[in-house]
Deep mutational scan, measured.
Amino acid sequence: AQASVVANQLIPINTYLTLVMMRSEVVTPVGIPAEDIPRLVSMQVNRAVPLGTTLMPDMVKGYA
């Protein structure tokens, strides 16, 4: 199964992502692939992302 990117903490709206904020986990539904974690660093979330939430492409500015 493919691992997705999951929030490792509460990520406030407009926060620039860093490695410590994200982890990879096999979840349903599938979100942003874990292999894209390096690409996500320094990208901004466009909403608050609670701890344990799967990151979806529409949550990250400029990802989709």
Rank of each mutant, 00 (worst) to 15 (best):
A1L: 15
A1F: 11
Q2P: 13
Q2L: 09
Q2R: 12
Q2W: 10
Q2H: 15
Q2E: 10
Q2M: 15
A3T: 08
A3Y: 14
A3I: 11
A3E: 10
A3F: 14
A3S: 12
A3C: 03
A3G: 12
S4L: 01
S4A: 03
S4N: 01
S4P: 01
S4T: 04
S4C: 03
V5L: 04
V5C: 03
V6P: 01
V6R: 04
V6C: 03
A7H: 01
A7I: 06
N8S: 15
N8C: 03
N8M: 10
N8D: 11
N8P: 02
N8F: 06
N8K: 08
Q9V: 11
Q9C: 04
Q9A: 14
Q9Y: 10
L10A: 07
L10C: 04
L10P: 13
L10I: 14
I11F: 02
I11V: 05
I11W: 01
P12R: 07
P12G: 09
P12Q: 07
P12A: 12
P12N: 13
P12K: 07
P12D: 06
P12V: 04
I13R: 12
I13W: 06
I13D: 08
I13Q: 11
I13S: 14
I13K: 08
I13N: 09
N14T: 05
N14P: 01
N14W: 11
N14C: 03
N14F: 13
N14D: 15
N14S: 09
T15N: 06
T15A: 10
T15C: 03
Y16M: 10
Y16R: 15
Y16A: 15
Y16P: 10
Y16Q: 13
Y16D: 08
L17W: 01
L17Y: 01
L17V: 07
T18S: 15
T18I: 05
T18E: 13
T18P: 00
L19A: 13
L19T: 15
V20D: 10
V20C: 03
V20N: 15
V20E: 15
V20H: 14
M21Y: 11
M21F: 04
M21K: 06
M22D: 01
M22V: 09
M22K: 00
M22A: 00
M22C: 03
M22I: 10
R23F: 06
R23I: 08
R23G: 12
R23T: 06
R23E: 05
R23L: 08
R23H: 10
R23K: 14
S24L: 07
S24G: 15
E25M: 10
E25L: 10
E25I: 05
E25G: 13
E25F: 05
V26P: 08
V26S: 08
V26D: 10
V26W: 08
V26A: 15
V26F: 13
V26E: 07
V27Y: 02
V27S: 05
V27W: 03
V27N: 04
T28A: 15
T28Q: 14
T28I: 13
T28F: 04
P29R: 05
P29D: 06
P29A: 13
P29S: 06
V30A: 11
V30R: 12
G31V: 03
G31E: 01
I32D: 01
I32K: 00
I32M: 04
I32Q: 00
I32V: 12
I32R: 01
P33Q: 04
P33Y: 04
P33K: 08
P33T: 08
A34F: 07
A34E: 09
A34S: 14
E35R: 14
E35N: 14
E35T: 09
E35C: 03
E35D: 14
E35W: 13
D36T: 10
D36G: 11
D36F: 11
D36Y: 08
D36Q: 08
D36M: 09
I37L: 14
I37S: 11
I37N: 01
I37V: 07
I37K: 05
P38A: 10
P38I: 05
P38M: 12
P38Y: 12
P38Q: 14
P38L: 07
R39V: 05
R39W: 05
R39M: 09
R39S: 06
R39L: 06
R39A: 12
R39I: 14
R39P: 03
L40N: 00
L40V: 12
L40K: 00
L40A: 01
L40H: 00
V41W: 04
V41L: 15
V41D: 04
V41G: 03
V41S: 08
V41Y: 06
V41R: 05
S42Y: 06
S42T: 11
S42C: 04
S42H: 15
S42Q: 14
M43N: 08
M43L: 09
M43Q: 10
M43P: 00
M43T: 06
M43D: 03
M43E: 06
M43V: 05
Q44R: 12
Q44T: 08
Q44E: 10
Q44H: 04
Q44S: 11
Q44G: 04
Q44L: 10
Q44F: 06
V45P: 04
V45K: 00
V45G: 00
V45H: 00
V45N: 04
N46F: 08
R47I: 12
R47K: 15
R47E: 14
R47P: 02
A48M: 15
A48K: 12
A48W: 13
V49E: 01
V49H: 02
V49G: 01
V49A: 10
P50M: 07
P50R: 11
P50E: 06
L51E: 09
L51N: 12
L51H: 10
L51D: 09
L51A: 12
L51Q: 10
L51I: 15
L51P: 14
L51K: 14
G52T: 03
G52S: 06
G52Y: 06
G52Q: 04
G52C: 03
G52D: 12
T53F: 08
T53M: 10
T53Y: 06
T54W: 02
T54C: 03
T54N: 02
L55W: 01
L55G: 01
L55I: 08
L55P: 00
L55N: 00
L55Y: 01
L55S: 00
M56N: 05
M56L: 06
M56I: 07
M56E: 07
M56W: 13
M56K: 08
M56Y: 07
M56R: 12
P57W: 08
P57Y: 04
P57E: 05
P57I: 05
P57V: 05
P57D: 08
D58A: 09
D58F: 08
D58C: 05
M59C: 03
M59K: 02
M59L: 05
M59D: 14
K61A: 12
K61L: 10
K61G: 09
K61N: 13
G62D: 12
G62Y: 06
G62N: 13
G62K: 08
G62R: 06
Y63M: 09
Y63N: 08
Y63K: 02
Y63H: 06
A64D: 10
A64C: 04
A64N: 05
